[in-house]
Design a protein around this nucleic acid. Structure first.
Length: 308
DNA sequence: CTCCAGGCGCCTT
DNA sequence: AAGGCGCATGGA
C-alpha cells in the first residue's frame, strides 16, 4: 500500500506469534474514504502518495482504500484495533441508514453522487475545539488554523517511519495554558478567546465531555451550549460527529441555501424552522442525511439543482 | 475592489 | 422573541 514496501501486512499475518502488526485491513463495502475525510466533519486528513494521512488520538496513521477494503498503517505496532474500527464506524450498516432517508429528488441526487459517505466517530475535545474554530470560515481555512494549532501546541508523536514526528491534537489542558495572543498567532482571529475560555472550562472539569455520552440529546446540547463560542450549530456538529446522536442536525449556510430553493421556494425560511422541518422530514438519521446534502451541495450541485 | 465563509454573542426593538 | 451587527482572516 501507499509508498512503503508492501510487505508490512503480509509479514504481520504470516509471522504468527510475532509483535503486533503495524498494518490492518478492514473489509468493507460502500465506504467512500475520500468523501468521508473531505466532507467538512474532520479537518486534519491530508491526501499524499495516494494515501490519507492523519492522526487519531495519539496515533499517526495512513489509510488507503482499494475495492472492498480499507487498509491502515500506523507508526508503531498496534495490538488492539478497536479504536480505529470505532473511529471509522466500519461496523455500521450504511444501507440500513440510507433506507431511512426520505425518497425525494434532492436526497436521491445527494446519495447517488457520494454513496459511501460516512460519519466518523471523533474524539469529543478535538471535534469541539475544531468547530469552535469553524465559524464563518471556509473548510480550507479551518484546516489551516487547525494545522497551525497542532503544530504550535500539539504533543509530538511518532510519525511516518523515517519521517518527522507528527502532532496530536492539543489537549484542553495544554490550550488552557496558552495565551490569547499565542492562539491568535494560529490565525483564528476573534475565535481565540472562545477557544481559550472553553479549553479552561474543560480543563477545570466544569464541563465533563465524557459524561455527555450518558445524557439525552437535548441535555447534552444544553451542556455544550454553555461553553463560550458554542451555539446551536456547533453544538449539533459535535453531537453528530463526536457523540453519534443520529438526529442532531447542524443547520449552516449551505443547508439553508439548499432547503430554501427546495422545500420553501416562496418565503424566506429561518434556521429554526429548518430544524423543525428536519425532525419530521428526514427521519431518525436526519444528521446523516444532512451530511449527504451538505457534501453534495459543496461538491456537485453548486447552483444547478437547488438554486434556479 | 467586494463578497462571503459549516456562527456566536450582544445589543436593539 | 426577533432582527442587526461586529468580530479576524483570507479565498473567490
Amino acid at each position: 500500500m501507499c509508498s512503503t514496501p508492501s510487505n508490512s501486512l503480509n509479514a504481520a499475518t504470516s509471522d504468527e506469534c510475532a509483535a503486533p502488526p503495524r498494518a490492518r485491513t478492514f473489509p468493507i463495502l460502500d465506504y467512500d474514504l475520500a468523501a468521508t475525510l473531505t466532507s467538512g466533519q474532520v479537518f486534519r486528513w491530508e491526501f499524499q502518495d495516494r494515501c490519507w494521512t492523519g492522526v487519531i488520538g495519539k496515533r499517526w496513521l495512513r489509510l488507503s482504500s482499494e475495492g472492498g477494503s480499507i487498509t491502515a498503517e500506523t507508526a508503531e505496532p498496534v495490538a488492539d484495533w478497536n479504536w480505529l474500527r470505532d473511529y471509522l464506524q466500519t461496523d455500521l450498516d450504511l444501507g440500513a441508514v440510507l433506507e431511512t432517508f426520505p425518497d425525494d429528488e434532492p436526497m436521491r441526487a445527494a446519495v447517488d453522487s457520494c454513496r459511501g459517505l460516512r460519519l466518523l466517530r471523533q474524539e469529543p475535545w478535538e471535534c469541539l475545539a475544531s468547530f469552535i474554530l469553524s465559524s464563518t470560515k471556509q473548510i480550507v481555512q479551518i484546516r489551516q488554523i487547525v494545522a497551525l494549532l497542532c503544530e504550535q501546541f500539539g504533543e509530538p508523536i511518532p510519525g511516518r517511519p523515517g519521517g518527522p514526528p507528527a502532532r496530536a491534537f492539543p489537549s484542553a489542558d495544554r490550550l488552557a495554558r496558552a495565551s490569547e495572543s499565542g492562539l491568535r498567532a494560529c490565525k483564528m482571529g476573534f475565535r481565540a478567546p472562545y477557544l481559550l475560555a472553553t479549553a479552561r472550562r474543560v480543563a477545570e472539569g466544569e464541563v465533563d465531555l465524557d459524561r455527555l455520552r450518558e445524557l439525552t440529546l437535548e441535555t447534552a446540547r444544553a451542556e455544550l451550549m454553555k461553553l463560550a463560542g458554542v451555539g446551536r450549530k456547533i453544538a449539533d456538529c459535535v453531537l453528530l460527529f463526536a457523540y453519534g446522536f443520529p438526529s442532531a442536525f447542524p443547520v449552516d449556510v449551505w443547508v439553508v441555501k439548499a432547503f430554501q430553493g427546495l422545500y420553501f421556494p416562496k418565503r424566506r425560511v429561518k434556521a429554526a424552522r429548518l430544524r423543525r422541518f428536519s425532525e419530521t422530514h428526514f427521519g431518525p438519521n436526519a444528521g446523516y442525511a444532512q451530511q449527504y446534502l451538505f457534501h453534495y451541495m459543496r461538491t456537485n450541485a453548486r447552483r444547478s439543482l437547488f438554486i434556479q
